[in-house]
Design a protein around this nucleic acid. Structure first.
Length: 831
RNA sequence: GCCUGGGUGGUGGAACAGGUAGACACAAGGGACUUAAAAUCCCUUGCUCCACGUGGGCGUGCGGGUUCGAUUCCCGCCCCAGGCACCA
C-alpha cells in the first residue's frame, strides 16, 4: 500500500472491477424491499457540469446507503436526448443532430463512470432511440383515441429565433425559456394534450404529497390557479346574443356599469361593425395585440380602451351598459370579457375615471352605515363587506350575496356557479426536426387520420439536410411527408411537427423499470414492482414544467392500464444550484468549473465529497477550490490512518464489546457508535450529508488523538478498539467516497465490495456512559459544568449543582426561588 | 400586490423535540519538523472589557412578548432570494 493517497492509482481500478463484477445491476426480487431512486436524467449537451455532479452525487450516496441497508435499489440513468440544441449545434458544426447527440452521450457516459456512480447501465436508453419514442407514439395514439390529444387552431406562443411554438409553461415573463427572445402570438393549428381533464386531480394531490417540498407544491398550485366564481351572461342591447363573463365577485353585479372585452374577443368586430367607431376600434385592437406580451414588464402600462359602439344589459339592474375594448383584458383567462365594477375594482376604477364612466358603490365595509360618494373616492374598495343599493340583496354580506345573486341568475338562465383555472391544455406541437414525430396523417378526404399501431414507429428520417435558419426540414423532405392515407389509401401528407421534448421526460422513469420490453410501452409486472419512484432528485427549475407534466402522464397511463399508481414520485428532493463567486456558473460569466479538470486534479472521491460537505443539498453550493483541497486533505488523512497502522490493525480483530475498557478506549468505542448513529440518521432521515461527514471527521480526529497518546498499543484492547473505529469509519464513508472506501476495505483484509457489506449498526450499550456532563445555570446564564452519574435523579442533580463552589459563589447567599432540572442535561437555579 | 423560502463569526455551514450558540471545515495568525520548500503536526481565532481567570458583559436582521430559559414559539417591522401576477 502506498503511503500517499493517490486517487489516480485506485479509482479506475475499482470502476473496472465494479463493471466486471456487474455490481450495480438489479433484478426484481419479491423477497427484498424495493427502492427506486432516480435523479433527473441529463440533456446530452456535450459535457457533464457541476450541477449534474452534485445532483448525481446526492443520488449515489442514497443508492449505496440504501443498498447496504438491504434494499433492492433501482438506480438507472439515461438521456433526455431530443431537443433543439442538437439541431443548432449540428447546423453550426455541419454535422447531424443524431451524430452530435450520440457522440455526446458516449462522452458523458464515460464522465459519469469516472465519477463512480452506481447506475445499472443495462437499463440505459436515450429518448431519441426509436425503441423509446415508438412507444411514445403509441401512447399518443391511445391519447388520441380517448380525446386526450386533439388538434385545434389557437393563438400560440411563437419564438421567431427558435422557429417553433412554445407551451405556456415555457414562456417566462413574455420571453422564450431557451433563448430569452420575446415571444409573439401567432394563430396556428396545433396538437394539444388535455391536461385540463386532470386539473382537479392534479390540484387535489398537491395536498397529498407529504414527501414533496412545500414550495414546489405551492408553485404548482399557483400554476393551476383555481378560482371559484360565477359565469354571468349579459344580453346584447340590440340583436341576439350575449357576452359571458367570469367573475369571483357576483356580489358586485349591481355596481357593474360597463363591460370590457379583450382585443381578441370575437364580439369586438361584430359590435363595432358599421358604427362610427369602427375604424378607431380596429386600429386600437391592432395596436393592443402588438403590445401584448412583448412588454410584460411594463408594470405601469397605461390602461386604455375604446368604446365599441355596442351595449349590453346588466342582467340584474336591467340597465344598459356600454361595451369597451380594453388593453388589460386577457383573452386567455376566463372568457376574455370582464364586467367592470369601478367602485370595487382598482383597474375598472382607473378606467372609469379616465373615460368618464359611472361609478356606483354597492359594497360598504361591515358596520359602516355611510355610503361613500363616488366622486370623492380615490381608490376602489376591493374588500368584502355588506351590500347596499342592490335591490333585494341589500344588507347581505359579500359571501352570502355571491351565492344568492348567482342562484337568482341561474333561475333566469343568465348565469351559474363555475370554476376557472389558469392552467391551459398543453400544446405539444413543435415545428422542429429533432423530436419524436407525431403519428398522424392528413388526408384530403378523411381528414385527420391516426397512424395505425401496426405501422409504428413513424421513424424520424436521418437523411435530411438541415436548413440554416433552423426551420424543420421535414415539411420539405418528400420521402417523409409523402404517404398514403391509412384509411382510404389515397396519397396523403404526414404530420411534420414533432412532439415537445417534455413528452419524453414525462414517462421515462416508468420505462427504466423495463427498458428492454419490446411488445408494449411498459411491462405491467416489472413496472408494478418498481414504481412509484421512491425518491426523485433534481433541480428546482423543473418545479412546474417537467414535474407537472410527469404527474399528468402518470394519471393518463394509469387510466390506460399501463400503470397502477396515481403519482410518479413519492418523495422529491430539489437540490440547489452550484454557484461560483456568488453567481450561477455560466460561460458568459466565465466562472465555470469543469468536472473533468477537478477529477483529474483531485480524483472523483474528492469532488463528490466536496459537493456533499459544503452545504446541505437543498441549498445553493458555493464552489471553493480551497474547500476542495480541504476535502482532499481529509481523504489523505484517512488514507494515512490505514497506511501507517496497517500491520497492527491486520493483526487483530475488531473490538466485540464488553466492559472494563480503560477510559480513553471507552471514549473512542463510544464515539464510534455515536458516529454510526449520527451518520445513519443524517443520511436516512434528512439527506444532511454535510453533518454526517462532519461527524466522521470528528471520529477521525479522535482516532488520531488516541494514536498520539502515550498509551498507544500498550493496552490490551487498544488495537481491537482501533480496528472497530477504523473499519466502521470506512463503511460509513463508503457511499460518499466509494473508491477509497473499497481500497481501504480490501487493505484491511476483506474480499468483496463494501457495497455488499451490511450498513453498520450502533449498540445502545456502547452509547451509554457512566457519567455525563451537565450544565448549571443561575438565572438562565451558564455558570458551571459538572459531571454527574448518567442515571442521577433530579434531586441528586440539584444537590450536586448546589454543592458546586462556583455556583455557591453566584448564588451568593441569595434566596433560591426555584430549581429547574432537565435530567442528563441541565440545571437552572433561579434566585 | 399575493405565495413560498431565508437572514447565525472573516467564509461555507452546525445546533434534528425551547435547554452549553458557533460542531465540522475553509481562511487568517503564531509555532514545531526541514539547509529550504512542499507535505504533516500543534496552538489561537464571534465582539468587547479586565485583576488573564473553569473571569465579566454583549451577541443568531430589528422591536416587543411568552418562558426558569428563545437562533428555535407568538406579535409587529426591515432586508434578500425564488415563484405567480392587469387572473376579473
Amino acid at each position: 500500500m502506498e503511503s500517499r493517497y493517490a486517487p489516480k492509482n485506485i479509482e479506475k481500478k475499482w470502476q473496472d472491477w465494479w463493471e466486471r463484477e456487474n455490481l450495480f445491476a438489479v433484478k426484481e426480487d419479491p423477497q427484498k424491499k424495493k427502492y427506486y431512486l432516480l435523479e433527473m436524467f441529463p440533456y446530452p449537451s456535450g459535457r457533464i457540469h457541476m450541477g449534474h455532479v452534485r445532483n448525481y452525487s446526492i443520488g449515489d450516496v442514497m443508492a449505496r446507503f440504501l443498498r447496504m441497508n438491504g434494499y433492492n435499489v433501482l438506480h438507472p440513468m439515461g438521456w433526455d436526448a431530443f431537443g433543439m440544441p442538437a439541431e443548432n449545434a449540428a447546423i453550426k458544426a455541419n454535422t447531424h443532430p443524431a451524430r452530435w447527440t450520440y457522440e455526446n452521450i458516449d462522452y458523458m457516459r464515460v464522465q459519469l463512470k469516472k465519477l463512480g456512480f452506481s447506475y445499472d447501465w443495462s437499463r440505459e436508453f436515450a429518448t431519441c432511440d426509436v425503441s423509446y419514442y415508438r412507444w411514445e407514439q403509441m401512447i399518443f395514439l391511445k391519447m388520441y383515441e380517448r380525446g386526450l390529444a386533439y388538434r385545434k387552431a389557437s393563438y400560440v406562443n411563437w419564438c421567431e429565433t427558435c422557429h417553433t411554438v412554445l407551451a405556456n409553461e415555457q414562456v417566462e415573463g413574455g420571453a422564450c425559456w431557451r433563448c430569452d427572445q420575446p415571444v409573439i402570438q401567432k394563430e396556428m393549428d396545433q396538437w394539444f394534450f388535455k391536461i385540463t381533464d386532470y386539473v382537479e386531480e392534479l390540484l387535489d394531490y398537491t395536498t397529498r404529497l407529504p414527501g414533496w417540498p412545500e414550495r414546489v407544491l405551492t408553485m404548482q398550485q399557483n400554476w393551476i390557479g383555481k378560482s371559484t366564481g360565477s359565469r354571468i351572461l349579459f344580453p346584447l342591447a340590440s340583436g341576439d346574443g350575449s357576452i359571458t363573463v367570469f367573475t369571483t365577485r357576483a356580489d358586485t353585479l349591481f355596481g357593474a356599469t360597463f363591460m370590457s372585452l379583450a382585443p381578441e374577443h370575437p364580439m369586438v368586430e361584430r359590435l363595432c361593425r358599421g358604427t362610427p367607431q369602427e375604424r378607431d376600434v380596429l386600429s386600437f385592437v391592432e395596436r393592443a395585440k402588438l403590445a401584448k406580451r412583448s412588454d410584460r414588464e411594463a408594470e405601469f402600462l397605461e390602461k386604455e380602451g375604446v368604446f365599441t359602439g355596442g351595449h349590453c344589459i346588466n342582467p340584474m339592474t336591467g340597465e344598459t351598459m356600454p361595451v369597451y375594448v380594453a388593453n388589460f383584458v386577457l383573452m386567455e383567462y376566463g372568457t376574455g370579457a370582464v364586467m367592470a365594477v369601478p367602485a370595487h375594482d382598482q383597474r375598472d376604477f382607473e378606467f372609469a375615471r379616465k373615460y368618464g364612466l359611472p361609478i356606483r358603490v354597492v359594497i360598504v365595509p361591515q358596520g359602516s352605515s355611510e355610503v361613500p360618494r363616488a366622486e370623492e373616492m380615490d381608490a376602489a374598495f376591493e374588500e368584502d363587506g355588506v351590500l347596499v343599493e342592490s335591490g333585494a340583496f341589500s344588507g347581505l354580506t359579500s359571501s352570502e350575496a355571491r351565492n344568492a345573486v348567482t342562484r337568482a341568475l341561474k333561475e333566469k338562465g343568465l348565469g351559474d356557479f363555475t370554476v376557472q383555472y389558469r392552467l391551459r391544455d398543453w400544446g405539444i406541437s413543435r415545428q422542429r426536426y429533432w423530436g419524436a414525430p407525431i403519428p398522424i396523417v392528413y388526408c384530403e378526404d378523411c381528414g385527420i387520420v391516426p397512424v395505425p399501431e401496426r405501422d409504428l414507429p413513424v421513424v424520424l428520417p436521418t437523411d435530411v439536410a438541415l436548413l440554416p435558419n433552423g426551420a424543420s426540414p421535414l415539411p420539405v423532405h418528400e420521402p417523409f411527408f409523402k404517404t398514403r392515407c391509412p384509411a382510404c389509401g389515397k396519397p396523403a401528407r404526414r404530420e411534420t411537427d414533432t412532439m415537445d421534448t417534455f413528452v419524453e421526460s414525462s414517462w421515462y422513469f416508468a420505462r427504466f423499470a423495463c427498458a428492454d420490453h419490446h411488445s408494449a410501452p411498459l411491462d405491467l409486472e416489472r413496472v408494478g414492482y418498481w414504481l412509484p419512484v421512491n425518491q426523485y432528485i433534481g433541480g428546482i427549475e423543473h418545479a412546474v414544467l417537467h414535474l407537472l407534466y410527469s404527474r399528468f402522464f402518470t394519471k393518463v397511463l394509469r387510466d390506460m392500464n399501463l400503470l397502477q399508481i396515481d403519482e410518479p414520485f413519492e418523495n422529491l428532493l430539489t437540490q440547489g444550484m452550484v454557484i461560483k463567486d456568488g453567481a450561477k456558473m455560466s460561460k458568459s460569466k466565465g466562472n465555470v468549473v469543469d468536472p473533468d479538470e477537478m477529477i483529474e486534479a483531485y480524483g472523483a472521491d474528492t469532488v463528490r465529497l466536496f459537493c456533499l460537505f459544503a452545504s446541505p443539498p437543498e441549498k445553493d453550493l458555493e464552489w471553493s477550490e480551497q474547500g476542495v483541497e480541504g476535502s482532499f486533505r481529509f481523504l489523505s488523512r484517512i488514507w494515512r490512518l490505514v497506511a501507517e497502522n496497517r500491520q497492527a490493525l491486520l493483526a487483530t480483530q475488531p473490538f466485540a464489546g464488553g466492559n472494563g475498557l480503560p477510559e480513553d478506549l471507552a471514549l473512542l468505542h463510544r464515539k464510534t457508535h455515536q458516529t454510526i448513529r449520527k451518520v445513519t440518521e443524517d443520511i436516512r432521515d434528512r439527506f444532511h450529508f454535510n453533518t454526517a461527514i462532519a461527524a466522521v471527521m470528528e471520529l477521525v480526529n479522535q482516532i488520531y488523538q488516541l494514536l498520539d497518546s502515550p498509551g498507544k498499543g500498550t493496552q490490551r484492547d487498544f488495537w481491537p478498539v482501533m480496528r472497530e473505529a477504523v473499519e466502521n469509519m470506512v463503511l460509513l464513508v463508503s457511499p460518499i467516497v466509494p473508491h477509497i472506501a473499497e481500497e481501504l476495505w480490501s487493505v484491511l483484509g476483506h474480499g468483496g465490495s463494501v457495497l455488499n457489506e451490511p450498513w453498520p449498526t450502533w449498540s445502545e450499550d456502547a452509547l451509554a456512559a457512566d457519567e455525563v456532563l451537565v450544565v448549571v445555570q443561575v438565572n438562565g446564564k451558564l455558570r458551571s459544568r459538572i459531571m454527574v452519574p448518567a442515571d442521577a435523579g433530579k434531586e441528586a442533580m440539584e444537590q450536586a449543582a448546589l454543592c458546586d463552589p462556583r455556583i455557591l459563589e453566584f448564588i451568593g447567599g441569595k434566596q433560591v426561588k426555584k430549581v429547574v432540572v432537565v435530567p442528563g442535561k441541565l440545571i437552572n437555579i433561579v434566585v
